[in-house]
Structure formats: structure tokens, C-alpha cells
Design a protein around this nucleic acid. Structure first.
Lengths: 359, 359
DNA sequence: ATGAAAGCGCTAACAA
DNA sequence: TTGTTAGCGCTTTCAT
């Protein structure tokens, strides 16, 4: 069907070897011939077949990227950087979504192996659950496929670029404590996630280390809006909230607002991610930047290092989050205002809730 | 290096043909043999080489996805669906970012061809500029590569799943007009983008068709926050705003708020995209859902149809946006309140602006 | 400087 | 039911 080097060779009455040499900029071809080969290749609309090339060279030009959750906006900058860095080096990015499913992750990795990717970047499903590093990563390692684990779940002997999740919890808690808050709480701490657990642990530790009567009032996750309304209605409610991520923070701000409270006047909120909109909401979110571009950069560097030196010792890098103080956090209020039960304002809420699934 | 069917065959003293048959679930192998082949394949950790397979079968299992701008969150749901639908059918997704660069787009398409993708989905760069369909798409068509154009720039003879950009402009304008607004404006209409131009045209047409003194006061894009502050300071300012997308709407709401105005009490805002956070900001954004999942679904269906019938006539589908009325739009105010010049509140703004590039 | 030929791992037509 | 064999398009030795 498509044009092959054979076609070019035949048309010129030369051999495929010569054509191949020209197309790969290899020496040993007379300039005149070279020019004619190039010309014919262009005329015929020749496009090299990468499958054939990969097959004979025993290596592909693919970088695989396997994400636990493609729907999560936090990975988009990472993906963009991977694509961009990969492109510079002549690689194509193969993408696969594990959709929080361990078995699907295994299948994704298997598919990547079948495509003989040159290297793999993985945000494992494990960090969303309590599982430890699943066996399929050990398999991958045993098969000597270059890959780098991302996220927060490392493993002895495996390359990884990890983020300090516990540290970010402490960072945010400390930020609130320094502002004068003593009663903190965590919102959105859905159980079973390692990332979440580590962030929570960080908050607890920072509060404990601080002393001076500082307490974590509440870190229940599943209670939802009604649960939080009940908490907010109490006079001894927390004044500083660590939200597990920006989206939760945004949601919590609506719960506050619907009850007539606001941040940072009544309650301070700090979260994690620094998604693109977080600076444009009001109050602008105090948050911790995940530095996804940097993580992508490091991840790719590590991957290429591994690809270049399959036998070098395991690499690990730990990256910190960066605090971005904005308007949603401030000193605690002098006076605890009453939280007006949101159910009385049901007209407004009903409207807000209507017509859209993503609410 | 890796295990091949030859290894399996040799170990069992059988032929590669038999092994291939078993591995592809082809009939004509004795059950006992079949079982032993499978067993050995597993024991040896055999992983089929897709490059070899593609080469001999003359078709790959790749779907290529080329996006004008991977950084834009509006494409993420689309990507997720493509990946998911592709997976169901046994395809891997190859991704490439054109970064708004026409030449990069051309290179991306070329790379996809070199990988002999079974089919291609493309959000062209063109829709962000005024260019018409670039030649590389005609090339692609001439080479008989199955591909589907997405976005809003179609072309005779090329398959496409397009969104009615003009219609969405009209939809939003009409929404505001029906609420009673007569002085409308467009915010964020960066010039040179076809998508933007079409949306603007839609707004203008709807306003014109409505009559009754309705006018589009302003649709200048580049004036930025200061420009808008000047507009908002006028007593004859617009009361209904069509924002070119959710992010612009969010930004505009901050401009309003920083001047002491609010939506929908003083000014109504309606936008396009329905990004995930748009229902959780306050006021929740009235917006038009791009129905990315549906577009992905249609796009993939069309692509598979094209792959199955390369000679069938060109296909085109037009999808509408869906209005999602939320809190940011309401009736026009009875009284025009004064816009307090934001420069007097510089402390707040300075804080919001500090420390982050993404602002 | 050039070409003939082997072979990467796989599938499928053909033979047995 | 099984095996032999000829490629798929390409790179690369080894002759010439």
C-alpha cells in the first residue's frame, strides 16, 4: 500500500541499503545519489514505517504514561510536560488510564510492554488506595523495563520521583497555626487513600508539635455537606481548615457561604494542588503547588538516565510542595459568627444544584 | 532479549505456526497442545511484540489524538473518553500536543502516519487562529488515513464532528436577553480565533434579531482588567456579559468583585465550557456545556466507521452546546450601583497577585 | 561507494 | 492437526 524504501530503490535502480543509508543520514553515499534519493522519497510521499524500524532496531520510540486517573486535572500539566520533553528527544507518548483500577493498571502496563516502550512513567493506582506497591511493578522491574514511579508510593529498588505528602499536610497546618488558628480540621479526607492519609498525618504531627492548645477538631471525610453544616453550627467549631485538594476547598467554601460565613473572615481554608483556577476564585485559594512541571522534568530525566544505564543503582527523588498563601487564609476571627442553617436558604441551593451532574 | 514465539515453539518441539495459532485463538490445534503452549507462554513470561504484529498485519492498534493545546482543561474529558472507548476496542492512544503551532501540528500528523495509526482524532490548531483548513489535512486525506476533525473548522470532503460555535453565542445572548438584559458585552474575545469569532457572531446575531433596543455594547478583548474597570465605571455599562469561556468568566467575576459589584445582582455572566469547577464557584457559573464526552463518543464512532469503510462518503456531524443556567445570571438590576475603582483597594489585589505565575 | 542478503518477531498460505 | 515457508519494511553486516 504505502511507499517503502524498496519502491524508492527500484525507481532509482539502486539498492535498499543505499536508500536506508540516505534516509538515516549515514555516510558512504555519493552526494549526487543522496540528493536523488531524497528527491524521490519526497516525490513519492515516503513515510518511514516505525514498526519495521522498531522491530529491527529492537527498540521503540515510545514513552508510556500510565495514570491512575486521567480525569483528574492535576495530571494535565504533567502530561503536557512529558509530551513536550519526549518530543524534544524524538519520542511519542502512549497514554493509558487506569481509572483507579488495579487490574486495569496491570493491563495497561502489559500493553505498554507489548508495544516495547522505551520507558514508562506511572502514577500508580496504589496511592489512591491503601495497597502497597503491587506485584506488577516488580514484574516490570524483573523484566528490566525502564520505568519511574510517580506520586507518593515508592518501593525499595524501584526508581521513583515522589512528593512529600506528609510534609504538605504539615506545611498547611503550620501556615494556619502561624496565623493564630488553634482549632483545625481536615476536609475531604476520604479514607483508604495513602496520599490522603499521609497528608492527614502531616497535619496531626504539625499540630501536635506546635502544642499551645492546638487541636485537630475533626478530620472525618465522608460526612458531606450536612455533616459539615452540623460542625459549623457549633460555637467551638474549627477556624482553620486544611482541604485535601483545591476542588474540595472550593466545595467547602460554598458550604461556608451558603451558611452566611466566609473565608478568611470566619474560617481560613488552605488546600493542595494549585490548579489553574485557584488564583481566580474569590477568595483566592491558599494552596500548595504540586510543581507538576518540575516533577515531570525530574521524572523524564530519571527515566532517560535509567534507559541509558539499566544497571545503575535505584534512584529516588523527593519533591516538596510549595506554599502559595492567598486570600482564603488569614488570622482567626475575633468573634464566632453564627452559621445560618443552609436548609433555610433552600431556594438558592436548589437552583445551584439543578441541571448538572458535575455539581 | 525478550521471549518470542520461536522460544516457545523450540521449548515444546513444535512450530511457530502452532504457537501463533494458539496465541491468537485460531482453530486447528489439539486441546492438549494448546494448553501446553499457553502454559509455556505464561511460564516464560511471553509478551507478544506488537511492532512485529503490526508489520505483518499491515495495521496497527493505535488511535492517534492530536490536540491544539494539551494544556487546555477543556480537552481532558474528551481525552479520557477516547482512551476509554479505544481500550474497549483494543486500541492504544498515541497523544501529541500541537501547542498552537501549525508546523508542530504538521509534524505530529506526520509522526502519527509513521506509526501507521489505524485512525486519528484531531483538534486542529486552525480553530485558534484564522487559518482555514491547512494543507496537511488534505495530504492526510489523499493518503487515505482515516481521521476525524474536531472543533469547529470543517472542510468539504473531510470527516468532522463539529460544535456549533455560533449557536452557543446566540444561546447565551438569548439567555441574557430573555432575562431582561438589553445591554450586553463580550469578554475575552481574543482576536484571530475562529472559535471566538463565531461565538461573537452568534451573540451579535441574536441581539440583532431580538431588536427592542438590545445592543452589544462592547466586545473588545484585549483591554484587560483596567479596560473593563473603565467600562464598568460608566453608568451606561452593560448588564449582561457573555464570557468566551469559563476561565475568562471566573476572571471577570474577580474584576467585578474587586470593584464592589457582584453577579448576578449587578451584572449577569454566562460563559462556555462547563468545566468541573464551574458549578462550585460562587456564584455558580451559568455556562454552556461542551458535551465533550458526547463529542468523543461521536468522534470515535465516526472514526471507526471510516476505518471500516474507507470509501464511504464524507461524514459530518454538528453538535450543539447545552445551556446550564446557574447563579451567575439573573434579571438585570433595578439600579446601577457605582463601581468602586479597584486601584483604591490595591492591598487586596496585590496580595492576590503575589507569588504565583498562573494568576 | 554500492549491493546482496540475513534477520528482527510475527502471520498466513500452502503442504503434508 | 501440524509444519514449512514466504514475506511485512527496515537496518546492517559483509562482499564487491
Amino acid at each position: 500500500m504505502a511507499v517503502t524504501i524498496r519502491d524508492i530503490a527500484d525507481l532509482l535502480g539502486t539498492s535498499v541499503a543505499t536508500v536506508s543509508r540516505v534516509l538515516n543520514d549515514k555516510p558512504g553515499v555519493a552526494p549526487a545519489r543522496r540528493a536523488r534519493v531524497l528527491q524521490v522519497a519526497r516525490d513519492l510521499g515516503y513515510s518511514p514505517n516505525r514498526s519495521a524500524r522498531s522491530l529491527v532496531l529492537q527498540r521503540s520510540q515510545f514513552i508510556g504514561f500510565v495514570v491512575a486517573d486521567l480525569g483528574n486535572p492535576r495530571y494535565i500539566d504533567f502530561l503536557r510536560c512529558v509530551e513536550s520533553i519526549g518530543r524534544e528527544r524524538g519520542y511519542q507518548v502512549l497514554i493509558a488510564d487506569s481509572a483507579h483500577d488495579l487490574e486495569q493498571e496491570r493491563q495497561n502496563l502489559e500493553a505498554m510492554v507489548e508495544h516495547r516502550v522505551a520507558g514508562l512513567l506511572v502514577f500508580p493506582v496504589a496511592e489512591y488506595h491503601r495497597e502497597s506497591t503491587p506485584e506488577h511493578f516488580l514484574d516490570l522491574h524483573a523484566r528490566r523495563i525502564p520505568f519511574v514511579l510517580l506520586g507518593n508510593v515508592g518501593h525499595d529498588g524501584l526508581d521513583a520521583v515522589l512528593a512529600r505528602e506528609e510534609e504538605v499536610g504539615a506545611l498547611l497546618a503550620r501556615h494556619l497555626l502561624d496565623l493564630g488558628h488553634r482549632r483545625l480540621a481536615i476536609v475531604g479526607a476520604s479514607p483508604g487513600s495513602r496520599t490522603v492519609e499521609e497528608r492527614c498525618a502531616g497535619v496531626r504531627k504539625a499540630v501536635h508539635a506546635f502544642g499551645e492548645g492546638a487541636v485537630v477538631v475533626c478530620e472525618d471525610a465522608e460526612m458531606g455537606a450536612d455533616g459539615w453544616r452540623a460542625v459549623l453550627a457549633r460555637s467551638d467549631r474549627p477556624t482553620g481548615m486544611v482541604a485535601i485538594n483545591d476542588e474540595i476547598a472550593l466545595w467547602f467554601l460554598t458550604v461556608l457561604r451558603d451558611g452566611g460565613l466566609s473565608a478568611p473572615d470566619d474560617i481560613s481554608v488552605a488546600s493542595v494542588d494549585n490548579l489553574s483556577w485557584s488564583s481566580n476564585v474569590r477568595p483566592a485559594l491558599t494552596t500548595a503547588d504540586a510543581c507538576m512541571e518540575e516533577r515531570a522534568q525530574r521524572g523524564m530525566e530519571m527515566l532517560f538516565a535509567r534507559m541509558a544505564a539499566p544497571d545503575s543503582p535505584p534512584m529516588r527523588e523527593m519533591l516538596s510542595y510549595r506554599l502559595i498563601p492567598r486570600g482564603s487564609s488569614g488570622p482567626p476571627p475575633a468573634r464566632i459568627r453564627r452559621y445560618a442553617d443552609a436548609s433555610r436558604r433552600s431556594d438558592r441551593r436548589a437552583r445551584a444544584a439543578s441541571g448538572v451532574e458535575t455539581l
